[in-house]
Amino acid sequence: EESVKIVRLVKNKEPLGATIRRDEHSGAVVVARIMRGGAADRSGLVHVGDELREVNGIAVLHKRPDEISQILAQSQGSITLKIIPATQE
């Protein structure tokens, strides 16, 4: 059973501070990098390897990473992410 986590981040004009990529094996959209000091890093709630399912209620599974980045870039104020946390080894 996948544990889905709802994360709310507050982002002003600054970038979210995370990059995403598509996992070639599973097809999932995952967090590739977290930039120090960005909104994602400061929240402490988003981690490399987390699978991104939704951004502000928009399912991202069938979107290209550049489309998802665009949605994230255009979002201001509160951003709600639905993520499946990376499995902690």
Rank of each mutant, 00 (worst) to 15 (best):
R64L: 07
Q70Y: 09
G57K: 05
R33F: 05
V46F: 08
R22I: 14
N56H: 01
A86T: 10
Q88V: 11
I79T: 09
V10F: 14
I71V: 08
A40N: 00
I83M: 10
D23G: 04
G38T: 07
E89T: 10
R36Q: 13
N56R: 00
D23R: 06
L45M: 12
G49T: 00
I83D: 04
S69T: 13
K13G: 15
D41T: 01
A40V: 11
V30Q: 08
V60R: 01
N12W: 10
L9N: 06
A39P: 11
E67H: 06
E24H: 12
Q70F: 06
L61C: 13
D41M: 06
P65R: 07
I20G: 00
V10A: 11
R53P: 01
K63T: 05
I34T: 04
V4E: 09
L9W: 06
V55T: 01
L52Q: 02
G77Y: 07
A40M: 15
I79L: 12
G37I: 02
S26C: 04
S69G: 11
A18I: 15
A86R: 11
R33G: 15
V4F: 06
E67C: 04
R21V: 14
R21T: 14
V29H: 12
D50V: 00
G37H: 07
I20M: 10
K11W: 11
D66E: 15
R64H: 14
D66P: 08
G38R: 03
N56G: 04
V31K: 00
G57M: 00
S43P: 00
I20W: 11
I83A: 04
V29M: 15
L52T: 01
G57L: 00
A18T: 06
A32I: 08
R8K: 13
R36V: 08
T19D: 15
V4R: 05
K82D: 02
V46K: 01
I79W: 09
S78P: 14
G17R: 14
V31I: 14
G57H: 05
Q76D: 15
V30K: 12
V31P: 02
K5S: 13
A18S: 01
E89R: 11
A28T: 10
G77L: 04
G44A: 05
D50P: 00
I83Q: 03
V10M: 11
S26E: 03
I58F: 06
V31E: 04
S78L: 12
K13H: 14
L9V: 14
V4A: 10
P85Q: 07
H62Y: 08
Q70V: 07
G37A: 03
S43K: 02
Q70A: 13
